[in-house]
């Protein structure tokens, strides 16, 4: 898990972000690296973070925002402590992506792209994760693969993540 700085004071956050930006100051080529580190720090990329990055690297806010919204990896909204990535690759899709998504939606009351009010989970739909043999599958926190999912198995999976 990343160290979340979303509760840090504004001044403190500005300073922490500056430390991330400094090696790339005035260098537009560092945009993706800086965004990645900033998201690891803050948990997501709100406007004020993007503005600070734009001004630090000497690019327009439009440039930053275009990159942030292009890559599914970057998020404009606060992320939960755990990220659930439901695979919607062909095999999983055929074997029950919809069922997995619906079960999660019923259990957690959230749609893809959203975060639970207690910041525990963020749900997203991703393209093939390469676990076709385990379809339908999902990945939690980018590393734990849970496969051959069925509706009644999912609550136990979620319980592993506080």
């Amino acid at each position: 898990m990343v160290t979340c700085a979303c509760n840090a004071s504004n001044d403190e956050l500005t300073k922490q972000l500056d430390r991330i930006i400094d090696p790339y100051r005035g260098n537009p080529g560092g945009l993706i690296q800086v965004l990645t580190k900033a998201q690891n720090l803050v948990g997501y990329l709100p406007r004020r973070v993007q503005v600070q990055i734009a001004e630090g690297l000497g690019v327009s806010l439009q440039e930053v925002y275009g990159v942030v919204t292009f890559y599914a990896f970057f998020s404009l909204i606060p992320r939960g402590r755990h990220k659930i990535s439901v695979c919607a690759g062909t095999a999983c899709y055929v074997k029950g992506t919809k069922m997995v998504t619906k079960t999660l939606k019923d259990l957690l009351d959230l749609k893809p792209g959203q975060t639970t009010p207690d910041s525990r989970f963020t749900l997203e739909i991703v393209r093939c994760i390469g676990a076709c043999g385990l379809a339908p599958a999902m990945i939690i926190d980018g590393k734990d693969v849970h496969g051959r999912l069925e509706p009644e198995l999912i609550p136990a999976v979620l319980e592993q993540y506080a």
Binding site: S60, E63, V64, Y65, G66, T69, F70
Partner: peptide
């Protein structure tokens, strides 16, 4: 001036200022 960018991707792409 760079007032515009391509927001999102694929079918959802929108040409617009940031945010």
């Amino acid at each position: 001036v760079q007032a515009l960018c391509a927001v999102n991707r694929g079918f959802d792409t929108l040409i617009s200022p940031a945010f």
